[in-house]
Write a protein that binds this DNA or RNA. Structure first.
Lengths: 114, 114
DNA sequence: TATCCTGGTTACCCGTTGGTAACTACTTAC
DNA sequence: GTAAGTAGTTACCAACGGGTAACCAGGATA
């Protein structure tokens, strides 16, 4: 009996890399919010009303460290900050599409039956 | 200023549904292992050497509850148990592909630069 | 002078996730 | 009798993720 799939190991590592970046309750929602265009802190917050400022700030930092978003500070009258997806962040589009598609499918198949 | 994207709310919910099912350190690896065909407990364990039997058992139960996999017990000489993807589980293929593709891309773009 | 807007930070707490080690039960092989 | 392979279970514990509430600073507005 084959003990393991050799190719499997490499595929597993790639999937884990991706999950590490996406993992957690808030990163996917934040990135999705930014796919509609650059936004300010408060605008993202209004897109995701149940996130606390602490988590939003923390997760934005993590996304910036992973080069998925940029943070731009404007020295306007009431200091404004704009967050935007980098090309790398935008490259998540397809993955996020699949995520949403499958989420809808799953809801119809399983959750809908309850 | 627009306070929120109306369509965004529905999209966010779908993505969250999907993430809830996939979330955690081990579910994606387990499902990927099973995309290579039905497997026994020990075979999955050999595909994912760093998972403990406790976690493997626990996550297999969770995946079964979400109707992604089936568990079949065979009354053979040394009791064997086979896990296999359901059609719903197989419907994750595209999502998992995107996950792996993006993981490889991310590794090249970011991790590779370090 | 007080309040609101901007965009956060800090301290504290709790529940879940996941890790380790040991143990179970049955059968076959040495 | 002892080990090894089947498929797990149990108890105990540490770390992290995330929630709440309060607070901060600067400028504008009333």
């Amino acid at each position: 009996m084959k003990s393991t799939e050799p190719a499997c190991q490499y595929e597993l590592k790639a999937a884990r890399d991706a999950m590490e970046v996406i993992q957690g309750k808030w990163r996917v929602p934040i990135v999705i919010s930014l796919t509609y265009g650059k936004k300010r802190f408060g605008e993202i917050h209004r897109d995701i009303p149940d996130i606390s400022p602490k988590m939003l700030s923390q997760e934005l930092k993590a996304l910036e460290e992973n080069k998925l978003i940029t943070r731009t500070l404007y020295d306007s009258m009431p200091v404004t900050v704009e967050y935007a997806l980098t090309p790398l962040g935008m490259s998540l589009r397809e993955l996020l599409n699949e995520l949403r598609n499958w989420g809808k499918y799953f809801r119809n198949e399983i959750i809908g039956q309850l």
